[in-house]
Design a protein around this nucleic acid. Structure first.
Lengths: 190, 190
DNA sequence: ATTATTGCAAATATTTTGCAATAAC
DNA sequence: GTTATTGCAAAATATTTGCAATAAT
């Protein structure tokens, strides 16, 4: 009865013990050009404004967590983030990471994703150009895609029902090209 | 520190204590006709075949849970289902409901949905015509919609990346027409 | 007679929280 | 000096599981 041995309230977050793949591929719409990365300068400003407005404080831990997150690849998990943070300051508690990511989420600077592997993943918000995800069920690779026509049709659907969309989730789950190749070659060799 | 008072390993599942709305609206694509309900006869046959093939047994509890589920509205939760089941036979344990819904999911007869309120919801699978969801963040109403053009574009995106789609999730979160009305009238009366 | 299933309680596992100590303002 | 923040352990909470008893085959 244990996929990972973890005592309650003891060690917690032995980061990396579960296969927590975190590939990332970014490909833009029909053209194939890369998806533009979010404007981190603006996001940092937004966050600063948000915090100032409610008297929230800039602590050493927050700065470390936020900087680490901004530098880290996207779709990072709490575990992955804490691991990186603790490489710099081992005394940071995981509650602080949770609380900081919650703050970032509430400020609108990051977006939470639950892709169904049990880990909440975080990525920088990007208001300008929305992207969605292809998630490989074999290797966990997450590929981003943009398709403005889908967004448009989606808006039209919402309109039809007088529905005001605040956010959306469009995720395709399946097998990526690499894993298909891997599978077929394995089949051949048997 | 308690949204709902629940002792560990004690009473569990005091169904109905959290606001667990479960409205349902079905509206078809551009035409506005209703979305066809799934072919329950076929699904029951599929399930029977699936169970027979692996020597799984038809017990009183399973029959009760399955019948109750087939009769119940869609997007039902474990809590809601157990509540209805216990109205007939109060001795049914929640582990049995979990296990039965897992069986149904694995057989491909039902689909799990996690709309983000912490409850897993279940609905009958419908291979013929896929539908997606509008989820109201205010009242929890779930509206189904069909948009074949989105499905087509989606397939095209997957193709572009050589990605083999097994399932997908397309959910729009926001405020439904009713709640928008309610909000604006409240604003007026103040 | 064999073995799948049930029901219970306990275990899991992610996230949240109470609280005393600390640090930012 | 006030009050937000931290870190810890414990709580919360949906789901899963070990196990002995029971029931379906």
């Amino acid at each position: 009865m244990s996929k990972r041995g973890r005592a309650r309230g003891k060690v917690r977050l032995d980061a990396g013990s579960r296969s927590e793949n975190n590939y990332l591929v970014k490909i833009g719409a029909s053209t194939g050009r890369g998806i533009r990365s979010p404007d981190t300068e603006r996001l940092r400003r937004d966050l600063h404004t948000y915090m100032a407005k409610r008297g929230l404080r800039s602590t050493e831990q927050r700065r470390l967590i936020i900087d680490t997150f901004f530098d880290a690849g996207e779709h990072i998990t709490i575990e992955g983030l804490l691991k990186q943070v603790r490489a710099v300051d081992s005394r940071v508690g995981y509650a602080t990471v949770y609380r900081t990511m919650k703050l970032l989420t509430e400020s609108g600077v990051v977006q939470e994703h639950k892709f169904g592997d049990g880990f909440t993943r975080y990525e920088l918000a990007d208001d300008e150009s929305h992207h969605d995800h292809l998630i490989c069920l074999e290797c966990g690779k997450i590929t981003e895609f943009e398709e403005p026509l889908i967004e448009e049709l989606q808006d039209r659907v919402a309109n039809r029902y007088g529905f005001q969309v605040k956010q959306h989730k469009h995720e395709l789950y399946g097998v990526c090209a690499d894993c298909q190749k891997r599978q077929s070659s394995k089949r051949k060799s048997r």
